[in-house]
Write a protein that binds this DNA or RNA. Structure first.
Length: 823
RNA sequence: GCCGGUAUGGCGGAAUUGGCAGACGCGCGCGACUCAAAAUCGUGAGGGAAACCGUGGGGGUUCAAGUCCCUCUACCGGCACCA
């Protein structure tokens, strides 16, 4: 009686066996090469969705292949467990954040195991566990000691909905990354990480990451936003020659300056307007601007608004009086917070000058032209290259050269020089929320800001707090707030902000290498052994946030001597979204496909197979019910093939003796399949084509003649089971047992192909006439160009095709084609 | 505006180094099995009667272009009054 394929029965069975035998434990074996396969760990929101299924299926197939290929593989999993949803659950239905989170983790862990993912759970981490966040605090202290964590008062991004501040990276088009509320500004004293110190390295080292998608590297480049130019220092005679510096990318236009603009928040503004007629008007404007977010203020739709301060600066080279303005479009925290206005050569400045009737002074002529600007007038900014005019000693210099020469001249005079600006700002890491890692700092009236010593970590999150979504919850715990100063022992106050959860996830990949170390975040030895992560898999949504922060962390820890590498992720695979009917799955659209339902109906192997087959990993994948049916059908097809032939198998591996044409062909196909699957899964990550090649093998096995050699047939079936093991682990294990093999299929050595076996005796050659396919011809393999040409031109079929025509040229490509050009 | 990516049958996609475009799968047609259906097995198809035409449009290089070069278009994404 034939057994039918029953995933509901075999999948839980093998999952239990693997767990009991510890099959997925990390094997530490110095004789083997290492491989660190990592998927971005999930936030424990409650349940895994199809996107999770996809990322973990991709990671698992890679990890399993490497294991069978003789690598020691680290394939761990954890939980990005701090975050606002746990607090929202507390506000909404009174849940305790910790309890809510750990219950979600339990459930999602079950889901992951049901997918058959080969995870070493002995290294599991949850960022909300004191065992983990103790070391997040430990590392915060490292940043502090390195001078990279500092506190400053600033206008920061504030999300009213989340009642907390946000980093620049968390403001997307002026909206909060999590809740899409409009972000406003707030003047607060907050902790920052000095990521701008690393801007240049974060930018340059992108070139050392060939394993990253171009797209992600470009996004990071854009975000860092390097801009080369010059600082130019003006003086203000009426303020006792106080200096004010502008940043410009066009120092070559310095002689064309007709005004200067400061950001409204620029510290000089109140002094410039003091006692002037403009004072009231300007200060009112400044107050108005402080309320607006940078995004609204500098949006392209918003009109440029400026006010004259009544004050003048002195031009550093000409000594001319330059009127000083304030305007909405100048930002305090980019460049120097001040710009020079050159209307003749900048479109924005031109529009501003026209609006406020400021002088326009031309200082660049198109090369080889002598335009009489005074006569013809100027109707738009001239932004092309050219030659300097009206520029003192620099007249006649090509403007490209003048960028450098003018900057160098300024430097000699002590009035500026070449410099670089970045768009990247320091990372604001404080959050006014409860469910996060407490910042290990205390404030003492006597000693000031005092870090909590490492031997007093962790600073535990208190439980006697009020979470109402309004105030900072930690301020509601008197016990937490009031502490003693670690330095003088006197009364002190604790920092009540927690850290941005992106700090937790900026180092978890390091913790996995030494997850149970009680004394250190990780040992240098373990980190240096396993890092870099050989393949990191996750969504494109972290292209800037998590991936930039993690790179920054790694560089800081490298500089602190804690690790030898300075980039964490050698290769990055950004998987596409899982769509249904061409749209993102969402509850509101009602197009959500539940992984649990699918696994229940078809089994995890079918889900994995479909996910990997339906699209290459980096593209979006459209979930189709008929497609899943097809994958299920294929597994049934394989099952029946094996089941019907179990009697042929012996305990020992089959030794193929291909001695007839069908067997020879099958033997060659098996080796071709091994090669293709090995390369597609192991190197190219095109799992879809690996699977299609396996399907072709199965199709061939179905048409294999009964009278052809059995040993080759069994060899093919055995190889098939092994090749499927990384993709569909449960059915492969079951079939391995079904045919009487010993041990686990997952402990088998990955087959290697014999290049000799791929060589054909005869090959089919395409015959082209003038580049068009006209016929095909079977010729012996291995003919040289000349032999092939001779062979084909002498052939009757070819003769017939070219009859009556003159051969002008013959191009022969061995093994492929012969193209005959006739006149 | 600057930067990056993508474009192939009815659909998902393949073609890795310039060498038979459309592998594999879905869907569809036909056949076998069946009283019938499902399941399964087999089989067929890019368009066109054909010459031929076909990889977003136009041009080019080449014996040969989905693949290389130029140019344009559409869509997706990042940055953006960034000085």
């Amino acid at each position: 009686m034939a057994r039918t394929y029953d995933p509901a029965h075999i999948e839980p069975k093998w999952q239990q066996v693997w767990q009991e035998k510890g099959t997925h434990r990390t094997v530490e074996d110095a004789n083997k090469p290492k491989f660190y396969a990592l998927e971005q760990f999930p936030y424990p929101s409650g349940h895994l969705h199809m996107g999770h299924m996809r990322v973990y299926s991709i990671g698992d197939i890679i990890a399993r292949l490497k294991r069978m290929n003789g690598y020691q593989v680290l394939h761990p999993m954890g939980w990005d467990a701090f975050g606002l949803p746990a607090e929202n659950a507390a506000v909404k239905f009174g849940a305790q954040p910790a309890k809510w989170t750990y219950e979600n983790i339990d459930f999602m862990k079950t889901q992951l195991n049901r997918l058959g993912v080969s995870i070493d759970w002995s290294r599991e981490v949850a960022t909300c566990s004191p065992d983990y966040y103790k070391f997040t605090q430990w590392l915060f202290l490292t940043f502090y000691e390195q001078g990279l964590a500092y506190r400053k008062r600033a206008f920061v991004n504030w999300c009213p909905e989340c009642s907390t501040v946000l980093a620049n990276e968390q403001v997307i088009d002026g909206l909060c990354w999590r809740c899409d509320s409009e972000v406003t500004k707030k003047d607060l004293e907050q902790w920052f990480f000095r990521i701008t110190d690393y801007a240049e390295r974060l930018l340059n080292d992108l070139d050392n990451l060939p394993g990253w998608p171009e797209k992600v590297r470009t996004m990071q480049k854009n975000w860092i936003g390097k801009s080369q130019g010059a600082n130019v220092t003006f003086t203000i005679p009426e303020l006792a020659d106080e200096q004010v510096t502008v940043f410009t990318t066009r120092p070559d236009t310095l002689y064309g300056v007709s005004y200067m603009v400061l950001a409204p928040e620029h510290p000089l503004v109140p002094r410039l307007v003091a006692g002037k007629a403009q004072e009231q008007e300007v200060l009112a404007f400044v107050e108005e601007m402080k309320k607006e977010s940078d995004i609204t203020r500098t949006s392209t739709d918003v009109e440029k608004v400026g006010h004259f301060t009544g004050a003048y600066a002195k031009h550093p080279l000409t000594g001319e009086q330059v009127p000083i303005w304030v305007a909405n479009y100048v930002l305090l925290d980019y460049g120097t917070g001040a710009v020079m206005g050159v209307p003749a050569h900048d479109e924005r400045d031109f529009a501003f000058a026209k609006k406020y009737d400021l002088p326009i002074k031309v200082v660049i002529n198109p090369t080889d032209e002598n335009i009489m600007w005074e006569e013809v007038g100027i109707t738009s900014a001239y932004t092309e290259d050219g030659t300097l005019i009206n520029s003192g000693d620099f007249d006649g210099t090509p403007n490209r050269d003048a960028i450098r020469t003018i900057a160098e001249h300024l430097e000699k005079e002590g009035k500026g020089g070449l410099t670089t600006s970045y768009r990247l700002r320091d990372w604001l890491v404080s959050r006014q929320r409860y469910w996060g890692c407490p910042i290990p700092m205390t404030y003492c009236d006597t000693c000031g800001t005092v870090p909590v010593p490492r031997d007093q970590l962790p600073v535990l999150l208190p439980e006697d707090v009020i979470i109402d979504g309004k105030r900072n919850p930690l301020t509601s715990s008197e016990d937490f707030m009031n502490t003693t100063c670690p330095s003088c022992g006197g009364a002190a106050r604790r920092e009540t902000d927690t850290m941005d959860t992106f700090i937790d996830s900026s180092w978890y990949y390091l913790r996995f290498t030494d997850a149970n170390n009680p004394d250190l975040p990780f040992s240098k030895e373990a980190a240096d052994k396993w890092l870099q992560v050989d393949e990191y898999i996750g969504g494109i949504e972290h292209a800037i946030l998590h991936l930039l922060y993690s790179r920054f962390f790694t560089k800081v820890l490298h500089d602190a001597g804690m690790v030898k590498f300075d980039e964490p992720f050698k290769s990055l695979l950004t998987q596409g979204m899982v769509l249904k009917d061409g749209a993102k799955m969402s509850k509101s659209k009602g197009n959500v496909v539940s992984p649990d339902d699918m696994i229940e109906k078809y089994g995890a192997d079918t889900v994995r197979l479909f996910i990997l087959f339906a699209a290459p990993p980096e593209r979006d994948l459209d979930w189709t019910d008929t497609g899943v049916e097809g994958s299920y059908r294929f597994l049934n097809r394989v099952w029946r093939l094996i089941e019907a032939n179990t009697a042929l198998f012996g305990k020992k591996a089959a030794t193929p003796k291909p001695n007839d044409d069908a067997a020879k062909d099958l033997y060659r196909t098996v080796h071709h399949t091994i090669k293709k699957v090995t390369e597609d899964i192991g190197e190219r990550y095109t799992f879809n084509t690996a699977i299609s090649t396996i399907m072709e093998l199965v199709n061939k096995l179905y048409t294999y003649p009964n009278e052809a050699d059995r040993s080759t047939f069994v060899f093919a079936l055995e190889t098939l089971i092994v090749l499927m093991a990384p993709i569909t682990p449960h059915i492969s294990e079951e079939m391995w047992q079904l045919v009487g093999k010993e041990g686990s299929v997952h402990e088998q050595t990955w087959p290697t192909y014999d290049p000799q076996a791929l060589v054909l005796d005869e090959v089919e050659i395409v015959i082209q006439i003038n580049g068009k396919v006209r016929d095909k011809l079977v010729v012996p393999n291995g003919l040289s160009k000349e032999e092939l040409e001779q062979h084909v031109t002498a052939n009757e079929k070819t003769q017939a095709l070219i009859e009556g025509k003159t051969i002008r040229k013959v191009v022969a490509v061995p093994g492929k084609l012969v193209n005959i050009v006739v006149g």
